[in-house]
């Protein structure tokens, strides 16, 4: 249980920061593509008998590289390409596992993870990843902000836009791999998108959005763990349900705020600007 809590804290830290980058850059589909394609890495690792982590990191980095190249050079074709790689990665994983005699991983644990059985070595990996993520984000904060908001202007100011884009998407890929090991593929997408989406509505800066996302993610993870422990439910799925509840509550609250503002203001709004 102690490892599970530590994993939840580290996953929240990484997902809050990386997820905010993914959401403001509209890379959710790309992140989903990387996460699914990474399954091909599992097949590859088992087929060739190499450590699981090298297979998944290798495949997810290659997938991220191809997807980002397409996203930069042929923007209007990027979604199709990501969709294809998404499916190819999964299919490759399934077939390679078919061809591997003996032990087969459980697809369910890949989808939902097992936060209650996280080994300490994984925690160290995640700790290292968390440190790298925070350091890169703090150091390149203004550049990342400029690239995400207006890449053309950033380029004009001499920011190495494409290079930084590649570096941060590589970071997204590696984060996804480690977090899948802990919480599974479905939860990684949920944690990457739900807290940043809620935070984006109230945050005045990208930094604040990242901070709120980490906190929200932490709340969802801990609450989910506690609920799953109390009622003996699958932890990954419970955390997702808690996050989804948070998502719908936030939708409701923003609706109510919008209604109150509409009623309170005499400004017709249409004539603004």
């Amino acid at each position: 249980m102690q490892n599970a809590l530590l994993a939840a804290v580290l996953a929240s830290l990484i997902c809050g920061i990386i997820g905010s980058f993914v959401v403001v850059n509209r890379l959710v589909f790309l992140a989903g593509g990387i996460a699914h394609a990474a399954y091909g890495g599992i097949g590859l690792a088992f087929f060739f008998g190499i450590p699981y982590i090298y297979g998944t990191i290798g495949v997810s980095l290659v997938a991220a590289l191809i997807m980002t190249t397409v996203a930069i050079t042929a923007k209007n074709r990027a979604d199709t390409f990501i969709g294809v790689l998404w499916a190819v990665g999964m299919a490759m994983g399934v077939i390679l596992l078919d061809l591997t005699p003996g032990y087969h991983t459980d697809l369910m644990s890949y989808l939902f993870g097992s936060i209650l059985a996280v080994p300490s070595t994984d925690l160290w990996w995640m700790f290292g990843l968390g440190v790298v993520t925070v350091a890169l984000t703090v150091f390149f904060y203004r550049d990342i902000l400029a690239i995400s908001y207006d890449a053309e202007f950033a380029k004009l100011r001499g920011v190495p836009v494409n290079l930084l884009y590649f570096v941060f998407i590589a970071l997204v890929a590696v984060s996804i791999v480690f977090i899948i090991r802990v919480v599974g593929l479905i939860l990684v997408i949920a944690l990457l998108t739900i807290p940043p989406y809620i935070a984006e509505q109230y945050a005045r800066s990208l930094m604040a959005m990242m901070f709120f996302s980490v906190i929200l993610s932490l709340v969802f993870n801990i609450t989910g763990l506690w609920v799953s422990y109390q009622w003996d439910l699958t932890s990954g799925a419970t955390i997702i349900m808690v996050a989804a509840t948070g998502f719908f509550i936030s939708l409701g609250i923003s609706r109510i705020i919008a209604l109150i503002r509409k009623n309170a203001s005499d400004d017709p709004g249409v004539f603004r600007g």
């Binding site: 203004r142 995400s148 908001y149 004009l156 001499g158 945050a203 800066s205 959005m209």
Partner: peptide, 27 residues
């Protein structure tokens, strides 16, 4: 100094006015 045509891109991006202007001071 460049003012692009579309100033409404990424309108929901969490960024303050001063942070947009500070982009002009990058590098």
């Amino acid at each position: 100094g460049y003012v692009p045509q579309d100033v409404n891109i990424n309108i929901h991006f969490p960024i303050s006015v001063i942070d947009v202007i500070l982009m002009g001071r990058l590098r």
